Amino acid sequence: MGDVKLLGLWYSPFVHRVEWALKIKGVEYEFIEENLQNKSPLLLESNPIHKKIPVFFHNGKPICESMVIVEYIDEAFEGPSILPKDPYDRAIARFWAKFLDDKLQAIAKTFFFKGEEKEKAKGEAYETLKVLDNEVKDKKFFVADKFGFADIAANFVGLWLGVFEEATGIVLVTREKFPNFCAWRDEYINCTQNKEYLPPRDELLAHFQARFQAAAAASK
């Protein structure tokens, strides 16, 4: 198995993707908490291009970008498969993981931006949610009948999005507008398989409530 370390932040959905993959595979690892306000030499040296978390280390070799890391973990360690075995299903899983990554920024901007930029981001977020609402109709998982790669990539919309909504009072998702997505999200949060790996929602909520409140106070 070798030496395994993960550099990140406990509340980051991107870091959590990697932790989820490691737990599915039963891989023991050392977690190193990063400070993005004062980035460590380890982060700057191991991810000199983006200078972002997560960074995964296996036998001293760094790997960056959360879904790249998840795919590496799936290939490098024994245990349940995360990517589907079937080539077509594997391609579809990668497609939805890429789609989710591409659209997350616009959704997040809705909570962090103001004015015209906020409204533009909100419009983009609604378009993304419409696509997801259509895709997850009558589905528990993104690909076939098994939790996997795309579902891990969906952790932000599965859990963090609702936390952001409650922490800020900005509501993007309603059952009237997105009934299929809401049904899928309920299943995502509450199914026994996911509960084992998801971080405590109350802890995430407390963290982001404090963070958004501090940002609001600083902007006055």
Rank of each mutant, 00 (worst) to 15 (best):
A167T: 03
L6F: 01
W160Y: 14
V136I: 10
G162C: 05
E165G: 10
D3A: 01
Q209T: 15
A215W: 01
L129K: 07
K114R: 14
Y88Q: 13
D102G: 11
G158H: 02
F95D: 01
A218L: 05
M67N: 11
A214Q: 09
K140T: 12
Q37E: 15
E33D: 13
D101N: 12
A153K: 03
D89Y: 13
E203M: 09
D102T: 13
G2L: 06
R201T: 06
D186Y: 09
V15M: 09
I69R: 04
E30H: 03
W184C: 03
N38V: 00
V171F: 07
E65G: 09
F178Q: 04
E75D: 15
E196Q: 15
W160V: 02
E124I: 01
D145A: 12
F111M: 02
L129F: 09
P179L: 04
E117A: 06
V55Q: 02
L7M: 09
A106D: 12
H58Q: 10
F208T: 04
A121Y: 08
L22D: 13
K109H: 05
E78R: 04
A125G: 08
W184I: 06
L83R: 09
S66P: 13
V4I: 10
D133T: 11
P13T: 01
C191E: 10
T174I: 05
K5W: 10
